[in-house]
Design a protein around this nucleic acid. Structure first.
Lengths: 193, 193
DNA sequence: CTGATTTTTTGATAAATGTCAAAAATATAT
DNA sequence: ATATATTTTTGACATTTATCAAAAAATCAG
């Protein structure tokens, strides 16, 4: 494991690509967050609990999923390096989560508590801009996903995924990808030929 | 058509339910927006154009849709009274829209230009809070939609819709609802029995 | 390296949904 | 009110996708 600085550098690069950030802001981020290594298959959030943490994936990969009535898992997000990891519903509303968050690989995460995030929003105007843009970014991504589910066949959805996120296929168990695409694992397996 | 005050009252009520707003802010909204009556089936945004307007639906109903390669329409949003009408992708990114916005009934809309919205964000802190919350609200809604598309059968999705938006069914042509739910019109027609 | 576990593939079949074409019902404009 | 246009339903059939069970392949821990 490298120095925490390396991981913060990635986070700051993301922020910086949206809006120039000051040294003071960087300091504040560092002193209000934690770099945590997390083993593969760790559950970071259980359904039923309130999520008051947002994570930046500095290294590794994680997913968000939930269980339907029959107890079958549906994966709704798969996040890799330099992406934000969050249970959108619970973090935004403060209500108990219906989702789980689980690491898929050994990860290095930067963890921010909501309380601290809110303080940073108050102290640094530029952070509101960044926060808004990031929310919009993930919103758009989600909308594209919904549109694909509506409009594309299982095969086309898979093709979309391999063109836009080619690395995922070799890193993520097929069953997770299948449910993310809204298809059964068997069908996905057949599509791949 | 009633006095514009009536329509602004609805908008302010929405804002107020999120964060208390000042008289000064109300004045600023009024002087930076327009109340416009729009006839049914008016195209408010064409694919290819940049969208720099956001609408509040004070009366009536509208939809957002786009055309796939074969020219078939897919409706992605249906908005009614007291909801915001926007081409999320184009408005957020400033890029040309792939979507159309079209009224489904005679409407009264409150129109805000992006430029003015941004000015209001700068002048009124509380508006940032409201803007963020609204973005989060629609984000969550969109995520639920994506989850339903992944996890529920056509029939279940229809049932979800009638429990959560019972009024839509009698106001919207079935074909639009069908594509919103990601099913063919014929299948939806059969489900209804 | 090897046995145990997990993941992926395959086969057979059923169920869900789509497509095309046309008829029926409904809404709309004059 | 009537003709016209639009929307919804129906039928027959094709296609896609799900499901269940089991085999094959890959991965992991000791």
């Amino acid at each position: 494991m490298e120095s925490p600085d390396t991981y913060y550098a990635s986070l700051f690069q993301l922020f910086n690509s949206i809006h120039l950030i000051s040294g003071e802001f960087k300091e504040a981020i560092i002193s209000n967050s934690e770099v945590i290594p997390v083993k593969k298959k760790t559950i970071l959030l259980e359904a039923g609990n309130r999520s008051n943490r947002i994570y930046f994936v500095a290294k590794g990969m994680a997913r968000v999923y939930y269980l339907d009535k029959e107890g079958k898992e549906t994966t709704t997000w798969i996040l890799v390096e330099n992406e934000l990891l969050i249970s959108v519903f619970s973090f935004f509303t403060g209500q108990p989560s219906f989702e789980y968050i689980e690491t898929l690989e050994d990860c290095i995460l930067i963890e921010l508590q909501r309380e601290k995030v809110d303080q940073l929003y108050e102290r640094f105007m530029e952070f509101n801009f960044i926060g808004r843009k990031l929310t919009e970014h993930y919103y758009i991504r989600n909308e594209i996903q919904a549109n694909n589910l509506r409009m594309l066949s299982a095969k086309q959805r898979y093709e979309q995924l391999i063109t836009h996120h080619p690395t995922l296929i070799n890193r993520v168990p097929l069953g997770y990808i299948a449910s993310y695409l809204g298809i059964s694992q068997e069908t996905l397996s057949r599509i791949r030929k």
